[in-house]
Design a binder for these strands. Structure first.
Lengths: 226, 226
DNA sequence: TCTGTCAATGACCCTCGGTCATTTTCGCGC
DNA sequence: GCGCGAAAATGACCGAGGGTCATTGACAGA
């Protein structure tokens, strides 16, 4: 399957490459259309037929690129998530030496600005995992996630003296719960949203960045105090 | 529909009452069997046919008591949730006067001890709301929820001088996000669970009560400092 | 015993995720 | 430009599971 070095394969390569490019482009197209649907409505409401239609493809074709609905969602989440990991890594890599917990907290919160689609999908992750995601799919996702957690976590450990080996990843998992919770409070669940906008209750406007910074600072202070 | 005061209705009452009792008992039976299934597996894996079978009823019968799968879940959540509200209200009502934020935090955390089924269902709530819950169902749930939020929230406002009108309910919504987040970290999502138990990462044992107390104390301190 | 009411039943329907035999596209050699 | 073979695309079809409804059964009251 993978291109090897024979003369035959080499001659065929340009065309193969062109085809692969097309495939990759179509894959991205599907992901993009799916993202539009997922951010507009709920997970259950997004039908694979809709994704296909918006991508101007037949339903069966979508399944050539993504084996299941869950796989499509996970691929989408992975793309956004890993782009964010890169962004965070970039921020953490500028400069050197130890940082205060508060600075790390601010940096992380900053990295999440303008990442609404990502945080929205993160809030949906639980929903997807509650479906019948096959272990194989979850395993693949998990492995790639762990790699990123390890890489980004190591950067965190460099910046914070009190973090032991592997604890950077642990911190990022806390972060996941925090972001999901904040997003949930802010605008995800229909009932919650209605509740939040109730007239006789002071509106619960969530300043995402500020609240996240505070929560992370507290968390890091706690870890440091151990 | 509601029993009125005519002679005819009064004569019929004993039998009517008996029947209603039977109905109520059967309703509780279904809820109980459903709870067993929901806590054992994920939301999607619980089939209405299974609930019926475990309740020794035909599938159609279950739908006489709960119009949809979502309604069954919400009814179950409501039952557990409102029992917890009552417990919390009892704890908040003992004694009088102002309390410190920390004491309130401890009390709330204490009220949640032994409420695994509830916290588990709360973590599933997002999943259910992502299904096609009809607005009517969500509205009914919302109204009853708001009533409880107002009642319990008012008790909180009595205990904490710095809480304005309606902010007790706001605090309880924060609580929801915190509990869900903690539960999520502790053991809900399959992938997360696997990740948490990874050998090369320090195990993330969550002391539910302690962490919740701390988080709530921080939150209340922040509200007081405004 | 007859009758009217209401609960219970399970065969049936519909939607939607997922499959696969068939058709279409396209690079290539002649 | 014309077949040829392989890969991609298609959409009719399948099965699972939530939800429905005409029929059956149980039972209180006359």
């Amino acid at each position: 399957m993978v291109s090897n070095g024979t003369a035959k394969a080499k001659r065929a390569l340009p065309l193969r490459a062109r085809r692969d490019e097309d495939k990759e482009a179509r894959r991205r197209l599907i992901l993009q259309e799916a993202l539009g649907l997922y951010t507009a409505t709920s997970y259950a409401e997004v039908k694979m037929a809709d994704v296909a239609e918006r991508s101007r493809l037949a339903k069966g074709t979508v399944f050539l690129y993504f084996p299941t609905k869950e796989a499509l969602f996970l691929a989408l989440l992975e793309a956004l998530l890993f782009a964010w990991f890169e962004k965070l890594e970039g921020l953490l890599s500028s400069g050197a030496g130890r940082w205060t917990g508060e600075r790390v907290a601010r940096t992380v919160a900053e990295s999440l600005e303008g990442q609404e689609p990502l945080t929205r999908l993160l809030a949906l992750l639980q929903t997807v995992l509650e479906q019948n995601v096959t272990p194989a799919q979850a395993r693949g996702f998990k492995e790639r996630l762990l790699e990123a957690l390890g890489r980004t976590g190591a950067l965190l450990e460099e910046r914070l003296a009190f973090l032991g080996p592997g604890e950077g990843g642990r911190f990022l998992l806390h972060l996941h719960a925090l972001v999901t919770g904040l997003r949930q409070m802010a605008d995800v669940a229909p009932v919650t949203r209605e509740v939040l906008e109730l007239p006789h209750m002071a509106p619960l406007r969530v300043d995402f960045t500020r609240e996240l910074t505070e929560a992370l600072t507290t968390l890091l202070r706690g870890l440091e105090a151990r």
